[in-house]
Simulated assay, not measured.
Amino acid sequence: MSETITGTVIHVVPPEELDDHDLNPALADRASGNYVVVCRRGGSPSLLQRVWGFLRGGSIDAVTVVTPDEYAEGEPIDVAASPLGVEGVYDATDG
């Protein structure tokens, strides 16, 4: 079941650097030849949202997306992706 992942890219692991990271085996298998993109779901919060989050002690809602497309840190991402079976990890390589 696919869902739309919308957010802001906070980290990218290109295919040639996948071996340099300790990835979950399911993620590593699916990521082979693709980019692993960590993003903040919903995009960048406003200053007021950041202050409110800090005061509440909350954290960001980060998700990881495996995608064939290259992204840069700070860019928006909007993809249709399916859960990979690992909490917070999605696969956007089929669509």
Rank of each mutant, 00 (worst) to 15 (best):
14 P>Q: 09
26 A>I: 11
71 Y>H: 15
36 V>G: 02
55 L>C: 05
14 P>W: 06
8 T>I: 12
36 V>I: 11
69 D>F: 02
20 D>E: 14
13 V>T: 14
57 G>C: 09
55 L>M: 09
3 E>H: 04
94 D>V: 09
86 V>W: 02
64 T>M: 10
29 D>P: 00
13 V>N: 01
51 V>M: 11
75 E>W: 09
86 V>C: 03
68 P>F: 02
13 V>C: 10
64 T>N: 06
51 V>T: 13
70 E>F: 05
38 V>G: 04
43 G>A: 09
52 W>T: 14
9 V>T: 10
12 V>M: 08
67 T>K: 02
82 S>R: 12
41 R>I: 10
68 P>R: 10
58 G>M: 12
64 T>L: 08
64 T>H: 01
87 E>Y: 01
17 E>M: 13
37 V>A: 05
76 P>A: 15
75 E>K: 08
90 Y>S: 06
90 Y>P: 01
80 A>V: 14
57 G>L: 07
87 E>M: 02
60 I>R: 05
53 G>I: 01
6 T>S: 14
15 P>Q: 04
73 E>Q: 11
70 E>Q: 11
87 E>T: 11
78 D>W: 05
12 V>I: 15
34 N>L: 00
10 I>R: 07
73 E>A: 13
20 D>R: 13
80 A>F: 07
35 Y>C: 08
86 V>E: 03
92 A>S: 14
92 A>T: 12
19 D>R: 11
65 V>C: 05
92 A>W: 01
7 G>A: 08
51 V>W: 10
91 D>R: 00
88 G>A: 14
91 D>K: 00
41 R>E: 13
7 G>T: 04
21 H>L: 12
26 A>V: 12
95 G>C: 06
